[in-house]
């Protein structure tokens, strides 16, 4: 679905990404981990076409990303940014409806999708509120509903990229958001999530990709990637890894 081949990226003289290889498949959740400044945001910007790589290629459906028109791409790929700058008093429902902008699926279908996407992000009760009256976490969920609406019907054709979607959310909504990411993967979408929390990553990801100083330091299942020596080397903090008492995944203690 979405592929990065030998991706390199440079800002000024600094190499931010070095030879990153990545393949995002339909139906899976891939979580990208790494320290601050490891290149996660740059990787996401390159994968979405926001930033041109200095070498290497990004392919969407085997076709170079740059050869897609903006609208074609928007029908296939939705991106949730870390934060948004909306300073106008739109109603929540109007913000979510912007997610249907690239599509021509008709008013009736759009209205159904809006309802479902708002329910999925737990913002239905806010539908008629002004966006400006919401808290940071509520705003974040409104944008989640917007990007869910954008690829709601895309199934195996779609991919969803979330940049630290849990950053300003309470515990319940952190889990709700990542459950939604899993739901979308279950419908066939390819989902990529950038996260900081190793345990949320371990619990919800099919595959982890650990970035360190612009390179892929490890890639694989949570058990393969979350190993003590590697984590201590990357994060420079002593850790212990043990089986999660409730779920079938590793638990990282630090």
């Amino acid at each position: 679905m979405l592929q990065a081949l030998q991706l390199c990226c440079q800002r000024g003289h600094r190499r931010i990404l070095e030879q990153v290889e990545l393949a995002l498949e339909p139906g899976e959740v891939l979580v990208v981990l790494g320290t601050n400044g490891a290149g996660k945001s740059t990787l996401l910007a390159t994968l979405t076409g926001e930033l041109a790589p200095s070498a290497g290629q990004v392919l969407l459906d085997q076709r170079p990303l740059a050869s897609w028109t903006a609208q074609e791409r928007a029908r296939r790929m939705a991106v949730l940014p870390q934060s948004s700058v909306l300073a106008f008093a739109f109603q929540v429902e109007e913000v979510v409806a912007m997610g249907r902008m690239p599509h021509a699926s008709g008013q009736r279908r759009d209205a159904e999708i809006l309802r479902e996407a708002m329910a999925a992000a737990d913002v239905s009760h806010l539908a008629a509120r002004s966006y400006l009256s919401l808290s940071g976490g509520e705003r974040q969920r409104v944008h989640l509903a917007r990007v869910l609406a954008q690829v709601w019907d895309s199934a195996e054709q779609g991919c969803l990229l979330l940049d630290e979607p849990t950053a300003s959310l309470d515990l319940a909504h952190q889990h709700l958001t990542l459950q939604q990411a899993r739901e979308m993967a279950a419908r066939g979408l390819a989902v990529l999530v950038v996260l900081h929390d190793l345990n949320l990553a371990a619990r919800y990801a099919d595959r982890l990709l650990l970035l360190h100083e612009g390179r892929v330091c490890a890639q694989g299942s949570p058990w393969e990637v979350l190993q003590v020596e590697r984590l201590e080397q990357v994060f420079k903090v002593p850790v212990r890894v043990q089986p999660h008492p409730l779920h079938d995944c590793p638990l990282v203690l630090s």
């Binding site: 076409g49 926001e50 948004s84």
Partner: peptide, 12 residues
């Protein structure tokens, strides 16, 4: 109004 990169992701 959402921001330039958001607009780009929405196909503008």
């Amino acid at each position: 109004l959402l921001g330039e990169s958001e607009a780009r992701h929405l196909g503008v």
